[in-house]
Design a protein around this nucleic acid. Structure first.
Length: 278
DNA sequence: ATGACTAAGCGTCTTAGA
């Protein structure tokens, strides 16, 4: 089973490139972020014609997360327990929830498509929202793993954090900015402390996953590594390869992020890959 | 070429991204 995560930066603008990638890279399951549309606006038909079922969670033109899968999708949940909201308070004082988390189970593997809040500025309310959101995700993930100790689980998506200085082209450029601050890195590392593994890093895959559209960032290779697949030990045991699909930043109309992919050894992929010998 | 931001909305500017 080949699983990828990709911040597509509008699925309506990117549908052709996304489906081309699914087919050329032989992807079974794609977690998408920043679909930037409501479910009723999602281009389902193109995905269905390519053989993929889609579950989309979006509330407006911002954020939005989805899965496309050619294997059956089960146990769909949007959001997680304790997930904070952001924005204008309702009459009861609660803050509106955003479409940033979607959980599914495929082939017995628990998968999340996650679009972690950006943070905007270190002194902006969005920054505190980002840290609270990550803390709540950590608690919800720990609870799930306690309740399902043998279930392979992976948190996949745009974490909007560069955990190491090698994950950015110039640490000095990011001083005083979000994505590299110590509280953000601490929030990321807390998942590793809890036993999740940064799968692409573990497998020795190098490189950035994001390059700003501005200032020739891609031709100059001035990027950031902010998209990750964090797997439980049960998940990691299934992984046999990983890749950052850097070429997806090339050509016409790319997203500013590229896919991060892992291939798992599951019975389904063995069935697909094993020669038929009788 | 991997090349000087991009996307969506009620929209000719604003918000958001990072």
């Amino acid at each position: 089973m080949r699983i990828a995560t990709w911040n597509v930066n509008s699925i309506r603008t990117r549908k052709g490139r996304v489906i081309d990638y699914l087919q050329s890279a032989d992807i079974d399951v794609l977690a998408m972020q920043e679909i930037k549309c409501k479910p009723e606006q999602f281009p389902y038909e193109e995905f269905e014609e390519a053989g993929y079922e889609v579950i989309a969670h979006g509330l407006n033109q911002w954020n939005g997360v989805a899965f496309a899968s050619r294997l059956p999708i089960e146990d769909v949940v949007d959001g997680f327990d304790g997930m904070p909201g952001f924005g204008k308070p309702a009459e009861d004082g609660s803050l509106p929830l955003e479409a940033r988390a979607l959980g599914v189970t495929i082939e017995g593997v628990r998968l999340w498509s996650l679009y972690v809040p950006n943070g905007r500025e270190l002194d902006h309310p969005h920054y505190h929202y980002k840290l609270e959101w990550l803390n709540a995700l950590r608690a919800a993930t720990a609870k799930r793993r306690e309740e399902h100790p043998d279930e392979p689980l992976a948190l996949m998506g745009d974490f909007n954090i560069a955990p190491l200085d090698i994950d950015i082209w110039d640490p000095a450029f990011f001083e005083g900015k979000t994505h590299t601050s110590q509280p953000e890195r601490d929030a990321f590392n807390a998942f590793l402390t809890d036993g999740l593994v940064d799968v692409t890093r573990e497998l020795g895959v190098e490189g950035y996953t994001y390059w700003d559209y501005q200032q020739l960032r891609f031709p100059r290779n001035e990027g950031m590594r902010i998209d990750f697949i964090l797997g439980s030990s049960e998940f990691l045991e299934l992984v046999n390869s990983a890749e950052i699909a850097r070429d997806e930043r090339k050509g016409d109309g790319p997203s500013d992020h590229v896919p991060v992919m892992v291939e798992l050894d599951t019975e389904t992929s063995l069935d697909d890959d094993m020669p038929m010998i009788f």
